[in-house]
Design a binder for these strands. Structure first.
Length: 597
RNA sequence: GAGCCCAUAGCUCAGUAGGUAGAGCAUCUGACUUUUAAUCAGAGGGUCGCAGGUUCGAUUCCUGCUGGGCUCACCA
């Protein structure tokens, strides 16, 4: 408790309540600064204590705050029956008045009503924002304690619980009421009776509590006539007064934009959303322990990098003032994780955000979570096995089976997974004889025939991959490892010993989407330098996503990086798969949107 | 970046072949002590996304803008 604070029970009114301080700071501009000055006269004034009125220059209103309220109905500013639009009065109760400052207040009747109730609590010697209750139980603990006991057993045993949660439903019967409380573990009904909690408490409850408020109840568990486990509250306390109403109980919050922008509301009213993010957390925790058990060390490498490397993507730029330099938000952690292989951490992984300054879609958010892991003395072949183990094990843990249904399609993660080469996939899905795919002229004509943008000097390998992505990738159901990527499109990848034009690399495709990308790592510093130089040439020719030269990374390789394999898995897309979510925004708590109008 | 679609009460949605709008839930008043979208009676609540244009008159028609969704392009 902050120094000088008074225990909530002893407060005469809400004056000392820090939460209330914040609340009224919102309404009353601080002395001398009038950012919302033009707005003040339209702001709510109910229950603003007198000292505040004087100190903050809120216009005082005539009559007691709760006096003429009802009488005012029907002559709200701007809605006078006579059609005359009066100047907004200092005591105006306009909800959505447009102030002359242009600021819009969207405090409507419902919000004003709830603020009035908060004041009602204060007038009765309480506070609408106490923090004086410890909570002993969760709704889940209560359910478990009740088990499958019969109503009779339950009442005999008198299991007393105390739970806290948000009221998500309320059914009122005059002298008794049912409320449904939601906490982090679930929902549970509470039954509040006048003869149990006392007349005064009960009347205040009725007058001041709404759906959306956070409350605490204590009492024995029982089962109602309709068979629902319920807390018979003999003590009750409002813990947080919500002054905004929740969406309606039946349809909930549907508007997609509001769901993303106000995820807090989405989480309150749409239980399935909570489950998606619980599962996301479980997936990440599971992967973390899967790798840790295999002796991988979790590390954190820079998100702000002087050179954005490790992937082909456009970076975000930011500015460090004290250093006087521009920095890039990372597009991948790869080059730093490999530095750690050089340093002797032979197995490392990182689960963290990458940032790519590119389009937004159901598959792309500008910041997204990537798992990358690197294992010394392993090859991409080893990582295929590891990936099979990881994802089939994950599916088994989540669903008890390796068979997962995604968007109506059934995917079986049971190993071994199909393996197909890039050229093989083009041959199979494009109906092209595979041997012709080594003919650069044929590749060029095919790409042009598909309407792909073909640069005059495009490498044959680039063309092959473009064709693959056009005709084959989205048709691979998978899970399938696509192998034998051309070296030209794999500038950080080790060359195949027998076929130097081929990279020892695979991508994991599930439902036509890339879930993982892995390869045996290039650790020949001179070859790596030549690959960077080639990338620079591409960049000079206008390829904005070509890699930059990273001299420090090359210096690290020059010290000797053990032979290794590394892999990246897009966590968001993995979570989409395992939560059957059609959009990446459904698995990111706060997806990137344009700023609100 | 392009195309198509959407924006009406706090929420979910109707609607106006151009004459400033309705329902359900929520809110308020009253009744109701085991309900399950509780019920019953009554009341209030809207610059119909924003800005122009056409018109006697625009929430409705037209144009632009803003925000969102989907598809395509780029990417993971």
């Amino acid at each position: 408790m902050p120094a000088g604070a008074v225990p909530a029970q002893e407060q005469g009114d809400g004056d000392e309540d820090p939460a209330f301080e914040a609340l009224r700071a919102r309404d009353a501009p601080a002395r001398g600064e009038g950012r919302r000055g033009a707005q003040v006269e339209e702001g709510y004034r109910l229950g603003v204590p007198d000292p505040l009125v004087r100190a903050r220059a809120v216009p005082a209103c005539e009559g007691p705050p709760d006096g003429p309220r009802d009488g005012e109905r029907g002559r709200r500013p701007g809605r006078r029956p006579d059609g005359i639009h009066p100047e907004v009065s200092p005591c105006g109760r306009s909800g959505r008045g447009q102030g002359r400052s242009g600021v819009t207040e969207d405090w409507n009747e419902l919000i004003r009503e709830r603020i009035r109730k908060a004041d009602e609590i204060r007038r009765n010697g309480g506070t609408p924002y106490p923090n004086d209750r410890k909570v002993g139980w969760t709704t889940e603990m209560a359910r478990r304690a009740a088990g499958d006991k019969s109503p009779e057993e339950l009442s005999r045993e008198e299991i007393r619980v105390d739970i806290a949660g948000r009221i998500v439903a309320s059914r009122n019967f005059g002298k008794a009421a049912f409320v449904v409380l939601a906490d982090r573990t679930g929902r549970l009904q509470a039954y509040i009776r006048k003869d149990k909690v006392g007349d005064r408490e009960y009347d205040l409850f009725l007058k001041t509590t709404d759906v959306g408020d956070i409350v605490w109840v204590e009492g024995p568990l029982f089962i109602t006539r309709t068979g629902e486990l319920t807390v018979q509250a003999d003590r009750y306390r409002l813990l947080t007064k919500a002054i905004r109403p929740l969406p309606e109980k039946w349809h909930g919050l549907v508007d997609v934009e509001t769901r993303y922008r106000q995820r807090y509301v989405d989480l309150i009213v749409n239980e399935k959303v909570k489950e998606v993010f619980r599962r996301r957390a479980r997936i990440i925790a599971w992967i973390r322990s899967f790798l840790t058990e295999r002796d991988f060390l979790e590390v954190e490498t820079p998100m702000m990098q002087p050179v954005a490397g490790g992937a082909a993507a456009k970076p975000f730029v930011t500015r460090h003032n004290a250093l006087g330099m521009d920095l890039f938000l990372r597009i991948a952690p790869e080059l730093y994780l490999k530095r750690l292989l050089v340093g002797g951490f032979e197995r490392v992984f990182e689960i963290n955000r990458n940032f790519r300054n590119e389009g937004i879609s159901t598959q792309h958010n500008p910041e997204f979570t990537m798992l990358e892991f690197y294992q010394a003395y392993a090859t991409h072949e080893d990582l295929m096995k590891l990936t099979e183990e990881m994802l089939s094990g994950l599916a088994l843990t989540l669903f008890g089976t390796t068979v997962v249904t995604v968007q109506g399609e059934t995917i079986d993660f049971a190993p071994p997974w199909e393996r197909i080469t890039v050229a093989g996939a083009v041959a199979r899905y494009g109906g092209v004889p595979e041997e012709r795919l080594s003919d650069p002229e044929f590749l060029r004509k095919t790409a042009e025939g598909l309407g792909l943008p073909v640069k005059g000097d495009a490498a044959p390998g680039r063309l092959l991959v473009d064709i693959f992505e056009e005709v084959a990738e989205r048709r691979i159901e998978g899970p399938a490892f696509v192998t034998e990527y051309p070296v030209e499109v794999s500038p950080l990848s080790r060359r195949n010993d027998a076929r130097p034009g081929i990279a020892d690399r695979f991508e994991l495709i599930v439902l036509g989407r890339e879930i993982a990308n892995a390869f045996s790592e290039l650790n020949d510093p001179l070859d790596q330098r030549r690959r960077f130089e080639e990338q620079l040439r591409l960049r000079e020719r206008g390829d904005e996503e070509a890699h930059y030269m990273d001299e420090d990374f090359l210096r690290a390789l020059e010290h000797g990086m053990p032979p290794a394999a590394g892999e990246g898995i897009g966590i968001d897309r993995l979570v989409m798969l395992f939560t059957d979510s059609p959009s990446i925004r459904d698995v990111i708590l706060f997806p990137q949107l344009r700023k609100e109008g």
